[in-house]
Write a protein that binds this DNA or RNA. Structure first.
Lengths: 154, 154
DNA sequence: GACAGTAGGTCTTGTTTTAAGACTGAGTCA
DNA sequence: TGACTCAGTCTTAAAACAAGACCTACTGTC
């Protein structure tokens, strides 16, 4: 299967991965969540090849996860900011972070702690049901084809 | 940066992505969540190159997300099943699926619907705080270095 | 006004990963 | 005996990535 054709699969996971499923994109977005905004900062913090960074940022802008905002005119300079669509990916990123904390942090503990401003506590992410509010795990869920299904999907 | 060295970064996202951040792994895990268990089934459903599939499955077994279970002896045949560590990734996968549903489903609607067995409703995933139980978004969170931090991380 | 520095890239070259598909080997079925 | 199944491995070519040189506008300093 070609990577580009993933976006045409009747599967929302495949479609999402067509955008953020390569090796660098989620790390670029992590930086964006940590308020990194400029090309040089991304490069310095990530250690990513400039060519790859350039391509990734352009794709994320194209897809509407980031927007390019001018912060000076002479010479023209832009910074990259998360859009609402980009912010919507937060649960995925925090989920991966907490999964890594749980399984790979080792004795020293988590590299970063996340505090919920509203309640003031360090938290971990919990998946809940939008309908009843209860905590969800894989075993509580059944799956069936929806209106956008063709043959098989997820 | 070398991909292999990602696992040594003081960042749980990087460590997680070192395992599941390549182009195929999350799709393989999706199939596992849909109860696909055998080499041929993965191949047929995903359209993945056999060589890549073989390598991914071995890595996922190595990392403890899947386990190889013999289901017959002559000839020896194994199937791949999710471990608890693999099941722990469910929030990430369902998060990507719902993100894709929201932003890429188009007019026809979601390819797959997920039902919460406990309450009987189709749901979407909601991220909540482990401490106070409230719904969380990126803007409600602050980040600071934890015990496993070195210089910078997330 | 020459020169260094900054910001945001592009280009080139060589290495890794993937894709596609042929091939292997152990065993079953008819 | 020959066809078929399952679970891979091997080969070759295409695509993606890493590293670093290079380019284009400016700005600020002497």
């Amino acid at each position: 299967m070609r990577w580009n054709s993933l976006a045409r699969e009747p599967c929302s996971l495949a479609r999402s991965l067509a955008v953020v499923g390569d090796r660098w994109t989620l790390l670029v977005l992590r930086e964006a969540f940590l308020r990194t905004r400029r090309f040089d900062e991304f490069e310095a913090k990530l250690g990513i090849a400039r060519r790859v960074l350039s391509e990734r940022l352009a794709l994320l802008v194209d897809e509407g996860l980031l927007q390019k905002v001018a912060y000076q005119d002479h010479p023209p300079r832009y910074e990259y900011r998360l859009t609402d669509k980009g912010l919507d990916l937060y649960p995925v990123i925090i989920g991966l972070v907490h999964w890594g904390d749980k399984h790979y942090a080792g004795k020293r503990g988590a590299p970063m702690l996340h505090t919920h401003k509203t309640c003031g506590h360090d938290f971990t992410s919990v998946l809940t049901c939008s309908e009843c509010g209860e905590v969800l795990s894989a075993r509580d869920v059944t799956v069936r084809p929806g209106p956008g299904a063709k043959k098989r999907a997820a």
